[in-house]
């Protein structure tokens, strides 16, 4: 059994093998591996005894359940109206410049993926972004350099 299979088994024991456990299990895999591979979706289908197409159908509906390869740190910049008005594009350009990738891409070392997302609910402190589950608000190009700098120094 490889680590993904073991993870899925653990999650199935924790949440149960009902259909209602599907989303928590998908979320559990994404939390560990950042995205869902075909392999992990088939394994989940076997574990819950449902068609793999149902697993993919559910997963592909949700924007936080990625089914394409992602980096270890997924950066999601809010693009909805207030963040847009308060300088979201400057934030985006700063990140693109620092990581040397464009929107939607992953750095060659597999560390960062840069995405945009819809309203994060921080309109009073716009612009905002998430790095995995961590939220950063009132961003300026300077603050973004500082924040990403900290992630650059993280090794794992």
């Amino acid at each position: 059994m490889n680590s993904t299979q073991a993870l899925i088994k653990d999650l199935a024991i924790r949440y149960g093998r009902e259909r209602t456990s599907l989303l928590p299990i998908l979320q559990g895999v994404v939390e560990q591996e950042k995205y869902l591979t075909e392999f992990s979706m088939i394994e989940i289908a076997k574990e819950l005894d449902i068609p793999a197409s149902d697993v993919y159908g559910t997963a592909s509906f949700y924007s936080f359940l990625e089914t394409k390869k992602m980096g270890r740190y997924i950066i999601r910049v809010c693009k909805t109206i207030t963040c847009f008005m308060k300088g979201k594009n400057q934030v985006l350009l700063t990140i693109e410049d620092m990581l040397n990738i464009t929107l939607g891409e992953t750095t060659p070392d597999g560390k960062f993926t840069l995405l945009q997302t819809n309203c994060l609910g921080w309109c009073h402190k716009a612009p905002a972004m998430m790095v995995n589950d961590e939220v950063y608000t009132e961003l300026t190009p300077e603050r973004v350099r500082e924040i990403l700098g900290q992630y650059f120094r993280r090794n794992e």
Partner: peptide, 18 residues
Amino acid sequence: SGAYICGEETALFDSMEG
């Protein structure tokens, strides 16, 4: 998991039902 429509109550049920 990042879907605005799930705030609609019946979509919310389906989401909870996997």
